[in-house]
Amino acid sequence: MKIQAFATHEHALRVRAQRNEVLSSNIANADTPNYKARDLDFASALKHAQGGPGGALPMKTTSTLHNQGVGFTSTGAELKFRVPTQPTLDGNTVETDVEQAAFAENAVQYRASLTFLNGAISGLRYAIKGGD
């Protein structure tokens, strides 16, 4: 059973998890020649995941093995290439310190979303139990 009151939090957690995967991939490929660092914009990805204005609904698939399309995540958000501040000779655009900072920030925001959701659920439990 899906509760609409928590739908936004569900989408936010899904997008944050997807962004963690993208940032992890960037860090893992820091030494891969010609690898291009990618990222997704959380606000536009969340809007897209909710099917809001400016965001189309994700593609309908009948199998988890279906490809979402080149440059798109499982949440339907478009992956964008990160522009490096200092390009390397081997064509790799991953800047490890930038990626690690983005990963840490995203992890903190993921945890904050979980804490907020837990607080909302605790409030509902409190109300249902009648203040006990």
Rank of each mutant, 00 (worst) to 15 (best):
A43W: 01
H48E: 03
F72A: 07
A45D: 00
T61C: 10
L79S: 01
L79D: 01
T85F: 03
D90Y: 02
H66I: 04
A45M: 00
T75I: 04
T64K: 14
T88L: 13
K60R: 04
Q68Y: 07
K60A: 13
V70C: 03
Q50D: 11
R38G: 01
R38A: 11
D41L: 02
L89H: 07
P87M: 08
K36T: 07
Q86H: 14
D41F: 00
F81C: 05
A77P: 01
E78T: 06
T64M: 09
G51Y: 11
H66T: 03
F72T: 02
K47H: 06
N67W: 04
G76K: 01
G69W: 13
G51V: 06
S63I: 07
K36E: 10
D41E: 06
P53V: 12
L57G: 11
L65M: 03
L57I: 05
F81H: 13
T88I: 09
A45W: 00
E78N: 04
P87W: 04
Q86W: 09
F42L: 05
G54F: 08
V83C: 12
F42W: 07
V70W: 12
K60I: 10
M59S: 05
Q86P: 03
L46T: 00
K47L: 12
K60H: 13
V70M: 09
Q86M: 08
T62A: 09
D39Q: 13
D41V: 12
P53A: 07
F42H: 02
P87H: 12
A43F: 02
G71M: 02
K36A: 10
K47W: 01
G71Q: 14
L40C: 04
L65W: 15
G55T: 08
S44P: 06
T85K: 10
G55M: 06
T73W: 00
P58W: 09
P87I: 15
K80Y: 03
Y35C: 11
L57T: 14
L46A: 03
K36Q: 09
A49T: 15
T62P: 14
G55V: 15
K80L: 09
L79F: 02
P58D: 09
S63W: 14
H48N: 10
G52Y: 05
L89Y: 05
T88M: 11
L40K: 01
F72G: 01
T62E: 11
K80C: 03
T85P: 04
A43L: 05
K60G: 09
G54H: 04
G71A: 10
L89W: 14
Y35E: 12
T85D: 03
T61Y: 08
F81G: 14
K80R: 13
G69C: 11
Q50K: 14
F42M: 03
G55C: 15
S74P: 10
Y35S: 08
D90T: 15
T88E: 11
L57P: 15
K36L: 12
P53R: 08
K36R: 06
P87G: 14
D90I: 14
K80I: 14
V83W: 08
R38I: 01
A37F: 01
Q50A: 09
R38Y: 12
T61A: 04
P84W: 03
T61D: 11
P58K: 10
A37C: 15
G71W: 02
K80A: 09
L65V: 09
A49D: 08
S44G: 08
S63A: 10
R38N: 06
T61F: 04
